[in-house]
């Protein structure tokens, strides 16, 4: 089943820490394909973490190709068991999330990030990302720790309705 439904709050899998994948086997590669396929059919989607499609494993996909705010761009990449090696140069931006469809929030995140993990071939990969790609990676890594952008905002005045007209 390549394209899976994207879960929204209050799905318990979204707020639980995900489990390590460990070995990239056939099932992990199927998960990678599902993440890519689901991202592809979701308009404007630049990243997706496994818990968002109901899988409590540490895996995400990011693709910021063509995004106006992207500087670094590594195309489509899936990482298993990602580790943020370095993060610096914080900047603020308003984020939305497919799993929190009604709200947005101002979140400060590092804009220069080094992230490593296993790719779908089981090879260890390291990516240096910045700007929008860095924000996308950190947003997805947060999902693996059971954290949403709602957990990163500075306070009640940093959360906003997404649809401002009814």
């Amino acid at each position: 089943m390549p394209v899976r439904p994207v879960l929204t709050l209050p799905a318990p899998v979204l707020v639980a820490p995900a489990q390590p994948v460990g070995v990239v086997d056939r099932r992990a590669r199927e998960l990678a394909a599902d993440l890519v396929d689901t991202m592809r059919v979701s308009p404007g989607c630049v990243g997706l973490a496994a818990p968002q499609i109901g899988v409590g494993l540490r895996a995400f996909v990011v693709d910021v190709t063509g995004h106006r705010k992207a500087r670094s761009c590594h195309g489509v990449f899936v990482l298993f068991d990602p580790v943020v090696e370095r993060a610096s140069d914080p900047s603020a931006a308003r984020e939305g999330c497919m799993s929190v469809p009604d709200l947005t929030g101002d979140v400060v995140r590092a804009s220069r990030v080094v992230v490593s993990g296993l790719d779908p071939d089981g090879e260890r990969r390291t990516f240096e990302v910045d700007a929008f790609e860095a924000r996308a990676v950190l947003h997805e890594v947060d999902h693996l720790d059971g954290l949403l952008f709602l957990d990163r905002v500075a306070g009640p005045h940093a959360v906003f309705p997404r649809k401002v007209y009814r």
Partner: peptide
């Protein structure tokens, strides 16, 4: 005209 500053910027939402 009142000596008051106004700064405005478009709010952009990054859906991740």
């Amino acid at each position: 005209e009142l000596g008051v500053q106004s700064h405005a910027h478009p709010v952009e939402i990054d859906v991740l």
